[in-house]
Design a protein around this nucleic acid. Structure first.
Length: 467
RNA sequence: GGCGGGGUAGCCAAGUGGUAAGGUCGCGGUCUGCAAAACCGCUAUUCGCGGGUUCGAUUCCCGCCCCCGCCUCCA
């Protein structure tokens, strides 16, 4: 079955054909965080989508080489550092660290490369690219000493966003220096130093300054992945201007098609509104963990809705995530019990879940199949009709599936001695049919976060909301 | 104004030209001392609204309404 993705460029679902699948890995570039504050869970929705995409490609047998940039110089990082009274690098360091912590909590696979915009290697490359753009007439230095991209000289500008440049309206979000630019839509490649930048500056043929926002991605992606990359992802808000500008810069320099497939993730909403720092309606990963949820639960909550559909974040949704995961956990435990005695392992031949993902990562259909399978195998186990070999076959299947979803609970959690002791006392009480004491002890066990279940094989302790 | 995304049960959410997956919640049942877990049953005569095409539309076409996003440094 063919792998298909919705390409923002064409606005159509297209069959995925990597540029050169035989000779080299798929080249994937994903827009990463701007490290001026801790990323919020809306940012992480995009990173989880990219994680799902990469893992799914790998399950399919592709090798993936992925780069994720870290923007560690821009207006906001400079302002933050100034306000904190620390050097830029020191200011951004804490948020880089936080980003990796949060990504790990959400089980996001590390990219192969995490280039930083302030790396001299990339600054040099940006300067080189800007030089080329100027020599081709695609860029110019204005009176304010900054260098701008001349969008009127690049005919394709606006094609990704499907914008007609004459229709552009200012939202007032960004201050325009209209006197200096030839066209209001011209964007900065190199920003001339000004006082507010303090000691944040690099030398260039156009004087001291710093890179514009978009050029870093063009420089780092082409430096690490080559002139032409297979997949480029980000949030929908990056379509314009950021990715549009990247196309203009990269293709302006190389004269080659920059990206084959543009994939964009819809926003995470709160109360029906986009989650954003500027609106103040955001949660960070630690905020969610502080409410008692695990990274795994948040991962599930952000993963379970198709990436192109806006997802409204709610605590009710977090609870649904918890309950759904508990269902999966219970199922795995039962399968392991049934499969224990049998060692021959061969996955069950079920491809529905993977096929759902082939269809533009249809995660909802995929999870639908997972839960249907869970119900069917649970029924078979209830009836004693699932043999050890089949249980193991399902476990092997799950192992494959879980390499994409990564939703399995952490290693077996050891039951604390206090809980074991309470469970023992409860069994004594139950033997004496002292139900009142038995129920009290169940309550006390529950207070430790554990649940005791009386099964035919005796009492069993399980942990609710496992990490 | 331009360009997108979305509107399917209390909530979340797939899907198809032939009469609606799954999750969660709720109710009833089996099991249990009682529970829990699991399973069984019930829960949208209906897919934003109005037309059209069709034997048949939630699905295709036209018009309209509502929500969200982007329109030059937001994932």
């Amino acid at each position: 079955m063919a792998l298909r993705f919705f390409n923002t460029y064409s606005r159509e679902i297209e069959e995925f054909e990597p540029r050169d699948p035989a000779k080299r890995p798929i080249r994937m570039y994903t827009c990463g965080p701007t490290v001026y504050s801790r990323a919020h869970i809306g940012n992480f929705r995009a990173y989880i989508f990219e994680d799902l995409l990469q893992r799914h490609l790998e399950l399919r047998g592709y090798k993936v080489h992925r780069a994720m940039n870290i923007t560690d110089v821009d207006d906001k990082t400079i302002r933050g550092a100034r306000e904190a009274g620390v050097p830029l690098a020191k200011f951004t360091e804490q948020f880089k660290k936080a980003f990796f912590e949060d990504a790990m909590a959400l089980r996001i696979k590390r990219a192969d490369e995490f280039p930083c915009a302030t790396d001299q290697r990339y600054i040099d490359r940006m300067i080189e690219m800007i030089r080329t753009l100027i020599s081709k007439g695609l860029a110019y230095q204005a009176d304010d000493k900054s260098v701008y991209f001349r969008i009127n000289k690049f005919p394709g500008y606006g094609k990704l966003a499907h914008f007609d440049l004459s229709q552009l309206q200012s939202t007032g979000r960004v201050k325009h220096d209209e006197y200096d630019k030839e066209h209001i839509g011209d964007f900065a490649l190199w920003k001339a130093w000004d006082e507010e930048d303090g000691d944040v500056k690099w030398d260039s043929p156009w004087g001291s300054g710093r890179p514009g926002w978009h050029i870093e991605c063009s420089a780092m992606s082409t430096a690490l992945l080559g002139d032409q990359i297979d997949i480029h992802c980000g949030g929908v808000d990056n379509i314009f201007p950021h990715h549009e500008a990247e196309i203009a810069q990269s293709e302006g320099v190389t004269d080659k098609r920059f990206v084959r497939y543009w994939l964009h993730c819809a926003h995470l909403l709160v109360d029906g509104q986009k989650m954003a720092k500027s609106l103040g309606n955001f949660y960070t990963v630690p905020d969610v963990l502080a409410k008692g949820y695990t990274g795994r639960e948040l991962r599930y909550a952000l993963l379970r809705v198709h990436y192109r559909v806006p997802l409204n974040f709610t605590w009710e949704g977090m609870n649904e995530a918890r309950e759904s995961l508990d269902r999966i956990d219970e199922w795995l435990m039962r399968l392991r019990e049934v499969g224990e005695k049998q060692t021959v392992k061969r996955p069950i031949e079920k491809t529905e879940l993977e096929e759902a993902l082939y269809d533009d990562l249809n995660i909802s259909a995929a999870l639908g199949f997972l839960f249907e399978s869970i119900r069917e195998t649970n029924r078979a186990m209830d009836e004693g009709k699932l043999d050890a070999a089949s249980a193991n076959a399902w476990l092997e299947w799950w192992k494959r599936i879980n390499s994409v979803l990564d939703l399995e609970p952490e290693v077996e959690i050891v039951v604390p001695p206090e809980v074991t002791q309470l469970a023992k006392e409860r069994e004594d009480a139950r033997r004496k049919k002292n139900w009142k004491r038995s129920d009290e002890l169940r309550e006390r066990i529950s207070a430790f976060g554990w649940e005791v279940r009386d099964t035919k094989e005796g009492p069993k302790l399980t942990r609710r909301g496992a990490p």
